[in-house]
């Protein structure tokens, strides 16, 4: 696969993002895409967003927990880049008009106070370099028709990242049991699911260390101030207009989001 094809596929994903439409799976086109090529397509997709004025604000780890792996039929983690346009701030209302086929995930975000340059990073380094952790919702979205994704599709599509919302409570990871902290998810006031930090690679800090090392191999650092989404602890939750989600992390606190509008699909 030459750079022209990589660029063209990245541009196709960016165009789908802009027009809130979907494209056929890249893996279904007889191109025999490797994981490495998929990440190059992702880089092109992100380059388009940066060229349009966004900045890099962090990274996300995807496909970390069993429920998500089972949903996707994908049994290894991946990563994507968080850009400034993905942050939802303020009143935590998510406008579904801007999304295609969104699903919500409850997770823990790490905000760094120091750079981390892998490889060679351990979970202990992650905690040392973390300013604070915060409960959050990531709203994943796929530019691939009907979420019919293989690992190469979701990687090329920036790990299916849509938007994310950070909760208001900040916790010091030195004062928390990130591995055993419960994750309780409510949808419209009713219990939806429960989980625990260990659902993500044994501990969310392990997932962040994995990403620091994986990116380090590619020469990409974690920068102080960046937000690292450590991966979903919950099942994927389909959302529509009027829905309210709340997650509550043991020892830490809550993040709430509301949804309004109508997604493309």
């Amino acid at each position: 696969m030459d750079q022209d094809l990589i660029n063209s596929l990245g541009d196709e994903l960016y165009s789908a993002f802009l027009t809130r439409s979907t494209i056929t799976p890249l893996t279904g086109r007889g191109l025999d895409i490797t994981l490495e090529q998929a990440y190059k397509i992702q880089q092109r997709f992100i380059a388009c967003r940066l060229e349009a004025g966004e900045t890099v604000v962090g990274k996300k780890i995807g496909v970390t927990s069993k429920p998500v792996q089972q949903f996707l039929g994908v049994y290894q983690p991946d990563f994507g880049i968080l850009t400034s346009g993905m942050q939802i701030a303020g009143d935590n209302v998510i406008d579904l008009d801007g999304l295609i086929q969104p699903k919500a995930e409850a997770e823990l975000a790490f905000v760094l106070k120091e750079d981390l340059n892998g490889p060679g990073i351990t979970a202990m380094d992650v905690i040392r370099a973390t300013d604070y952790v915060v409960p959050c919702f990531e709203i994943v979205d796929s530019r691939i028709t009907d979420w019919k994704i293989r690992i190469e599709d979701t990687v090329a599509d920036n790990a299916s990242c849509g938007v994310y919302v950070l909760g208001d409570v900040k916790g010091d990871p030195r004062k928390l049991d990130l591995t055993l902290a419960g994750m309780v998810l409510y949808k419209n006031g009713e219990l939806y699911s429960t989980s625990v930090g260990a659902a993500v690679q044994g501990s969310p800090a392990n997932a962040v260390a994995w990403l620091a090392n994986t990116l380090g191999e590619l020469g990409i650092p974690f920068k102080a101030g960046e937000v690292i989404l450590s991966g979903s602890q919950s099942e994927l939750v389909a959302v529509q207009h009027g829905d309210e989600l709340e997650c509550n992390v043991g020892g830490l606190g809550r993040c709430k989001v509301k949804f309004s509008g109508r997604s493309a699909v």
Partner: peptide, 8 residues
């Protein structure tokens, strides 16, 4: 906070 106690 009993409801948010995690268990493995």
């Amino acid at each position: 906070d009993l409801p948010t106690i995690g268990a493995v």
